[in-house]
Design a protein around this nucleic acid. Sequence first.
DNA 1: CCGTATTGGATAGCAACACTATCCCGTGAT
DNA 2: ATCACGGGATAGTGTTGCTATCCAATACGG
Lengths: 215, 215
Amino acid sequence: MRLAELSGRSGVPTATIKYYLREGLLPPGERVTATQAEYGEEHVRRLGLVRALIQVGRVPVATAKEVLHAIEDASLPHDARLGIAVESLPPPRGSAVDPEVLEAAGGRVAELRNALGWDHATTSVGQEMLVTAVATLMQLGYPCSAEHLMPYARLAGELAAHDMDLVEGFETPTTQLEAAVALTVLYEPVLLGLRRMAHAEEATRRYGKGVGTRS
Amino acid sequence: MRLAELSGRSGVPTATIKYYLREGLLPPGERVTATQAEYGEEHVRRLGLVRALIQVGRVPVATAKEVLHAIEDASLPHDARLGIAVESLPPPRGSAVDPEVLEAAGGRVAELRNALGWDHATTSVGQEMLVTAVATLMQLGYPCSAEHLMPYARLAGELAAHDMDLVEGFETPTTQLEAAVALTVLYEPVLLGLRRMAHAEEATRRYGKGVGTRS
DNA sequence: CCGTATTGGATAGCAACACTATCCCGTGAT
DNA sequence: ATCACGGGATAGTGTTGCTATCCAATACGG
């Protein structure tokens, strides 16, 4: 398969594929002559994943590169690759929060983890996300005590177990890693979309039809 | 309060505040002389909300403007304002999915709604998000049948009820609307952060300490 | 009053990001 | 022989969210 065909199969313009190759998001094709390279099925798969990460998951190109490299770094054991891949996932989305509030939020999250018995994993990007979000809520004066967060957290725990079961359903290490990354990222819009739908549903039930209107 | 003080109180640079004023994200201050305006406490609150929407919620400036205008449009009834505000929230984050797959995904979501009995709200941005995400998953060959989605959906339903209860805890219509917007947006990173944390926890339990390592 | 300092408004510039368009040269197929 | 195409390099584009610079009008301290 040449570049043009890869482009046709995946729906991604050749210029963009070249860009991904340049950035190391796609492994180079197998050089068949001095000026041409051959691409295979796994390039198609990989390209799909890349697009999904970038377009749906909003993952920055540089981050996607790290994640994908972690997946295929054969020098690492499976569990480390998984860890690096999923922990590399979100951009550290900086937001200027008062460091004092941030600390308070950190305490609250620690409290929550304690109450839940989540004492295995030490730190994680997820925790940073959470602390920042909680700090922002606190700064705006919205409630997010450990008790408020508990129901969310319990639900998150159920989801996580469900997700991991799904991932374990894949056979080979590589497909498992790919699935872990893809499901981590792609189920985020699923979850958020469902929450929004549920909001709309609940609001309509409570307040009537006026809620569902769009501008 | 003058612009400089508003800037000091909120931690937002004056240039940025001017930008928000220009874009209509903040109502103009009360003109006290020909060249000066007076800002009040509600500008501080509003500015906090704007920053939260933009920086934490990643809401585009133009979208934030719509949302905030809906909140304060006194000519509309409360429920309509709520509807417009939350339905304006997410950017329609276009992602090029095969329209055929998209349709299949739409069918699956309809099936899910049917199974859940979510028949009040008609369409919603949330549903679009969900359909797109499901279509992407399908295109990549990952499982997301209605059955797979059920546990997520049920949890989303619980969350929604919980969220609405929270919002109802606020007294005035305006604070309720603000809370609805803020909680819709700001609990998204909370939820995602918790899910990620739960993943890390569960992965560590299942596979050991290697998972929590960062690159 | 006078001089300096701000304020608010307008305009233009900047940095990051994800592409995208152009050029060029070497092949490869005919 | 030739001529389109593949692939590499380079530079340009459009968007977004600010940021920096100017400017005239006015406050305000003395």
